[in-house]
Design a protein around this nucleic acid. Structure first.
Lengths: 252, 252
DNA sequence: CGATTGTACCCTGCATGCAGCGTGCGCTCC
DNA sequence: GGAGCGCACGCTGCATGCAGGGTACAATCG
């Protein structure tokens, strides 16, 4: 994004987020500014700025005695986050359907779907390039929100995506190992087509409905992921999700 | 909220937000940290934390050369923000309808509606205590979101309300002077009743629909407010809204 | 042996000093 | 007289010093 003049606080924010997502900092841990600063190679001042941002984004929680801890999430909280994404994408789809002026606006979306078609080719038993799939999928969803032309919605969407497991592609890497993988992707791709079609024909209601359904796929995947603990490892930020009944140890 | 151990950065955040909302800092202005720090009585360090937060909330925008400026909003951006609030409240209403267990959960909501009934009594020509109305109205909407029991939705809602004119009560003070005031409030109160009823009967679809319609009232008020420049003064953060065609002077 | 209290350390939050940079104004040259 | 160049100021972003407080450990008392 901003390659050259990368400010210290941005480096801290990105670096810290990466550390959290990679699970190198366990959920619930209290963060030591000094240690973190050393680890990230930044000073405490920009680090504290980054901490404030990540708290606002919901990845950290401020502790009463001062300082921050890494938030952890229950299964229901994750599900709600995914549901929220569905709502926001639904609203974006509706607005897109209402506001798209001509076919030119949909170029990017059409291109994404076409490329996705090639990747999830039903004739092949397996999807090969998951990385490319992820990229295209994210581009599709990003473009969808962009088409809504609503700054407020865009901001809310970005905010919702701060929770990594709410991302549209959160479960793709997981699917790479799931048996029903290809089937799920075909479903998803069908929905992409339906969504595109609804937007093209200006049918806001249907577009919203399809987009919400689309997010429900992720919900289904969530519970299958929660089954095995090492499936969580595959999820971005999976280490932040706590398995309820399994470990009822009190945190803090 | 947190009265006693008010930290410096919280003071800065609240103080700065107040300054912005009161229009004491014109939209588009570049902020000088030094001057602001002096004015707010805090040091630069906590102030910069507050600046970062307010940028994240969308009240400020980071300038390319460094520093921040007060954002300004077009009519469409404001409308989209209100629409987004409608979407979020709609989703909250749906979840509330689905998740409410017993009548006890609805106690607060029922109480709000009952008290609102007394205030907007149709037999009276005028509503007297606007301040109390605002408080009750906000409690109603806050409680609605709380009933959804979705942390993600709650966070998104709070985020959306950072834009002051998107607040559910943004236009109430305006209505105090509008001719159709009482009529609008009666409409709104009817919707409150419908919303409560839909939630009580577990009808998520209808609850969502009503909540969205409810937000549309604000949209209507918006355009009537944009008519006169001094009506904007009555709006919280009204000074942030720029009148498009009227003043096409380039900012920055 | 357990509980309570005292102490010392670490850690957060804040203030301030400092360097790099962009900007605006003035001076000079054309 | 206008335009271009240079200089100096102010400002942001960052680093670090410092004070207050909370916590954990240990020592002592019951």
């Amino acid at each position: 994004m901003t390659p050259r003049p990368i400010s210290q606080w941005l480096a801290a924010k990105l670096g810290l987020r990466q550390l959290i997502l990679d699970g190198e900092l366990g959920a619930g841990d209290r963060l030591s500014e000094l240690r973190l600063a050393a680890r990230l190679g930044v000073s405490r001042t920009p680090l504290r700025l980054a901490l404030g941002q990540l708290e606002h984004e919901g990845l950290l929680e401020a502790l009463p005695g001062g300082g921050f801890a890494i938030r952890s999430f229950s299964r229901d909280q994750v599900a709600d986050a995914i549901d929220l994404r569905g709502v926001l994408e639904g609203s974006a789809a509706r607005l897109a359907a209402e506001r798209v002026r001509g076919p030119r606006d949909l170029g990017e979306l059409v291109s994404c779907v076409a490329q996705l078609d090639r990747i999830v080719d039903p004739d092949r038993a397996e999807v090969e390039d998951f990385e490319f799939y992820v990229e295209l999928n994210e581009r599709f969803h990003t473009e969808l929100v962009a088409l809504s032309r609503s700054d407020a919605l865009h901001a809310a969407y970005e905010h919702a995506l701060a929770l990594p497991f709410a991302s549209p592609s959160a479960f793709v890497l997981l699917q790479a190992e799931l048996p029903a993988s290809h089937h799920t992707m075909l479903d998803a791709q069908r929905q992409h087509h339906h969504l595109l079609d609804a937007i093209e024909s200006g049918d806001g209601d249907r577009a919203e409905q399809v987009a919400r359904d689309h997010a429900r796929l992720a919900l289904a995947n969530l519970d299958s992921a929660l089954g095995s603990a090492d499936a969580l490892e595959k999820l971005p930020g999976g280490s932040l999700i706590r398995l309820e009944q399994a470990a009822s140890r009190a945190r803090r």
